[in-house]
Design a protein around this nucleic acid. Structure first.
Lengths: 227, 227
DNA sequence: ATCCCTGTCGTACTTAGTACGATGAGTCTT
DNA sequence: AAGACTCATCGTACTAAGTACGACAGGGAT
């Protein structure tokens, strides 16, 4: 048997930086970013830890890389649509992406070396607002505000101590037993009469807030136009 | 010399959980939460690492504790004021507090065992909205939305790669050199014509967004009232 | 005097990031 | 074909950090 054709590790295609990032995202999605370690990633990739360091410089640069991948997954605001609609679509896409990657929100705004997908994303959003007629100053305000809402919402949604709609009851009841009901009447009311009601989901509030925000921004935009 | 009165470590009052938390906050403010270690905290408190573990259960419980302290620093919405004004005040106070403790935003919404100050804070905000006449459902939406904005903004503000108004130029220019200007025209325009202009601060956008949001919520509230 | 409680600490184990250099499999040159 | 060079992988080992376990000192209380 010729040594080139019949090896039993055919799937041993050489590791690449991209495969490291893909594996890292999968692992982070599964176990969370706090328990994410190079050693576990190596096991996941069927490789020894130090092999990873041939392809990437450090754990930090892996974080940089996967954050950029997350940005690349978010739909850009479509061109040729009214800015409000376009931004709305982009925000809804972003929320879906961030829900897939709950570890991402705290990281996305804290990277000091943005990747190319990140830069392209920001450029597209800025372009959308500018083409919509917003001034530079208003664009800055709008972008800061919208992304604050987006990341804040995703941050909260990702970190809720419950995930679907089952555990929430147990948790809420456990907390309710701990806390002095007479001192925290509104929290008790809120929990029992709203959160514990069937059908409640935190995520329900997303579009409410998004629309409130976009309306407010549009109002400010038309107002500053006519001034 | 009597051994009781003349010791040279008079300040050696026994360590308490509160002093551990206070020291932890100071240290985190100074060096950031990522480099915060029990060993450094021990040095700061002039004590050996294991002494800390007599007063607190784990590093995680320190985090729980200092997050609760941060909540306690935020002004509660004043009672007897219109909900919009009261919430506005509370948000402005919160932003100031979170700016003092830049490590806090990503943690505040991710604790599964909230402290008593945290619970009291949430109760006060919920009470403010309810007394303002908002329905339970609208209160939930409003609270989720407002806090999303708050944490998101603080998160971004805390993680900006610059701090005052000086380094921003260096950084922006460094990035500008790296990125292909013709592919990212809006980002280049935004950076050079707005961010690099004197007087620009990210924080300027806070009240703009806050008011846009509160206006939007108020509109939704009056609309659902008259329905 | 004995016992015990409280607060502090020394030692040591574990997990994790990663520096350094060795090694085997191609590939290229002469 | 033989040596040289590159690529990708890995073994070893150092360092930093969280923390389990138990020793120990000093000051009551019996």
């Amino acid at each position: 048997m010729s040594p080139a054709t019949t090896t039993n590790d055919l799937q041993r295609s050489p590791l690449t930086a991209d495969r490291v990032l893909a594996g890292a995202i999968e692992l982070a999605d599964r176990i969370g970013i706090e328990s994410f370690t190079i050693r576990k990633l190596a096991t996941e990739l069927d490789v020894k830890p130090m092999t990873i360091y041939y392809h990437i410089a450090s754990k930090e640069s892996i974080i940089d890389g996967i954050v950029d991948v997350v940005f690349s997954e978010i739909d850009l605001p479509p061109v040729g649509t009214h800015w409000k609609t376009a931004i709305r679509q982009r925000c809804i896409s972003a929320r879906a992406v961030l829900a897939r990657h709950p570890w991402a929100p705290p990281l996305m705004e804290s990277r000091t070396s943005p990747g190319s997908a990140t830069l392209r994303h920001h450029d597209a959003v800025l372009g959308c607002l500018r083409r919509g007629g917003l001034s530079l100053a208003l664009t800055a305000h709008a972008y800061a505000t919208i992304d604050s809402y987006l990341y804040g919402f995703a941050l909260q949604e990702a970190n809720l101590p419950f995930n679907g709609g089952e555990e929430i009851g147990d948790l809420a009841e456990a907390i309710l037993e701990l806390l002095p009901a007479d001192e925290l009447p509104h929290l008790v009311e809120f929990t029992t009469e709203h959160v514990l009601q069937p059908g409640y989901t935190f995520g329900n509030s997303f579009e409410f807030g998004l629309d409130a925000l976009l309306d407010g921004i549009e109002a400010a935009a038309t107002q500053s136009e006519s001034r």
